[in-house]
Nucleic acid binder design. Structure first.
Lengths: 226, 226, 226, 226
DNA sequence: GATGAATGAGTTTTCATTCAT
DNA sequence: TATGAATGAAAACTCATTCAT
């Protein structure tokens, strides 16, 4: 049940890139100006990632877009992958924060599930292309671990809620497994909702279907086994 | 409800790569020797894609692994992306064929759903890394369209089955929407099953959960509408 | 006064290409079919040279255009430069033949000059692009020598004519020098005529100007010597 | 009367090379060091063009000869053709400047013609091979237009001079046509003079012949019209 | 600190030429 | 003899990274 990623990272162990390269920022910007520089670089990276993908990302273009020189870029980031890692980190923070904020406790299971779905949709980065890029990037960029942490954390939140509504659940349901499954489903379905209707998020039809799927799963006794 | 991808392609419109580059094979091998060459190149590409990812793919390495010269490679494929596209095509064919083969008609809805799940698991490429690589690659490589076709085709198959068991379904269920949702869920869940237990496919626990999820969704009346 | 080229080759000693490569045909086609093959190859080369220039000439394209295989091409031509050399040779023959044919003896100097100009215009290859390509090609392709021969031969013809009309010429004119100069002028002016009015050759205005230039030169006594 | 090229470009519209490739410099060197680099690259290109021709020109050799890295070369020039274009541009400037400088007004037509010839000979690049290379290169390298401009400009200068000496000219001479013809002749003849006697420019014999040709043309009434 | 010029290893891609069938 | 598959050296071009100013 590991490896489930709710938001940022769909995939398991890193692959395709030498993992021993250090990807962490070189130093933290102290002065305000430096902080602005770093911020600009991260924003530029995110934009280019969204527009063109990782293949087309070059340090020169990032620097140009950010309005700084390559030299400055390398002052804060040791290599190209560190750029992408920084973007992943940056957005991870945002995601977790947003998710936590959207989360509330509710009286009924139905209301709780609604809250989950709402949180999932709301906390997705609004630009699905960036989301996708981050999803694909994280493991390649040395951020697979962090992905799993977030994933697990969200599954944990879900499990807590389920426990709170244990009496409404089908009795033979394993809460941990159910939580993991729901995390996966939420991830998938909100992905789809965003792809199909990027403009009108949350897409009500998708929300209704999703709620139905999850609620039915949680409350129906096991039928038709084997 | 487009853009659902069951097997090969999780994502929407291509991005991240200049689309006007032609990605189609340069010519078809006529002689047996040439056919073997092309085959070897595709196999080598698939291997390297699996092992190292698209970033690390170089035409030189593909040629080396395939035991041919770069020249031979370029005789049949106009560029690097065409290699990946060929792999996608190659496996798409296999997938559709496998899926069709695994498909059977059954008496009960439960049995039909079992059949779906079984087909989903069975027809996944056994190397999940390749599957993932293909998933990510397809849109970047000019194969987004084909992805949607396959997706839609599988959703269509599912819809047919649902229609056949209409009397067992919750009456307020839209068959087309349900089929699309199931396609998405199957894709995701079988992904996860493979990632978590690559050795023992099909993972029985995942299968049971998945069946439960889908059956509950299909048969429960809509409850707890907010 | 060497190096003057009337038709085919404007420039002096070969440069830019290793001269020790043999450029002569490999063998002469004996059978009719083989002769047709060689013919087709030369025609195809000439076309591609005209359309795309020497840079873009590849043996594969020549073979394709000629409707034969590369292998067949190499059966008759040892290397790429030999192709161009063959075209040069081929057209040289044609040029000389055409020039000889257009040449007639006339009563007056004016009529003789007219004849020269007419011959120059008529015997230019009708596709000026090919002409230019050949011009540039000859020295690079080991055919500089032949170019000079043709050049000299035409200058010789002109000198003969001048001698025949010696009494009409300015007395202090050196016939050999004059012939060489005229050869050069004819070359240039007919070039220009073709470039400016490719459709309507001979361009009457250019012909008149040219005649005036040459006749004035031949008949005026030397004036205004600095 | 376009398309006459006095110095740099003997031929008409570009051919033989894909024209949509951008040939302009990538960026202008700002720092002194960069300016030196660009200068070195242009000089090296000119040398290699002279010694070996365009066929044998490789970016690696240019860089080596210039004492810089390929990377530096590509920082300023987007491709190989841009190198040649830069050389053409560079020398065009020089040519026009030199021509303007050599130009003077004179009392008699004969003196004016002498001045033209002198200017033509003097302002030729001293290395005729480079001149030839530039001549052939200009159109292939996207510089045909510029060629025509220079051509036209020189013809214009000549026409002005002719107008100033209108009373000495044959009355039925069209000044514009005559200027264009003279431009062509000067180009050709100085070419030949340089080729035949590269060491002793100006070659007195050629100068005398050339003056005679032009003066006779300008002053003789039209004779022997067909 | 910031800049951007310089580097060069590493890739992609081409194409003349050979040779087994 | 004809074919066209295979070759691989060689060329163009990129881009992450360094470092003098």
């Amino acid at each position: 049940m590991t490896n489930l990623s709710f938001f940022v990272f769909a995939f398991g162990p890193a692959f395709g890139m030498n993992p021993q390269v250090d990807v962490n920022p070189r130093k933290f910007p102290r002065q305000a100006r430096a902080r602005a520089t770093v911020e600009a670089i991260i924003v530029a990276t995110a934009q280019l990632l969204t527009e063109e993908g990782f293949e087309a990302l070059t340090t020169a273009r990032v620097a140009e877009r950010a309005g700084v020189s390559v030299g400055s870029l390398y002052q804060y980031f040791p290599n190209k992958r560190a750029l992408a890692a920084a973007v992943v980190d940056h957005h991870s923070e945002k995601l977790v924060a947003a998710f936590d904020a959207a989360w509330q406790s509710h009286d009924t299971l139905a209301a709780a599930v609604d809250s989950m779905i709402r949180a999932a949709l709301v906390t997705h980065p609004h630009r699905p292309e960036l989301h996708r890029a981050l999803n694909e990037l994280a493991p390649r960029v040395g951020r697979a671990e962090k992905a799993q942490q977030i994933s697990a954390r969200i599954a944990g939140l879900i499990e807590t809620v389920l426990a709170r509504h244990r009496h409404e659940l089908a009795p033979d349901l394993e809460p941990a497994d159910a939580a993991a499954l729901i995390e996966t489903v939420l991830e998938t379905v909100s992905h789809r909702a965003i792809q199909d209707h990027p403009a009108s998020i949350p897409d009500e039809k998708a929300v209704i279907q999703c709620r139905r799927l999850i609620l039915a799963y949680l409350t129906s006794p096991c039928i038709g086994v084997g």
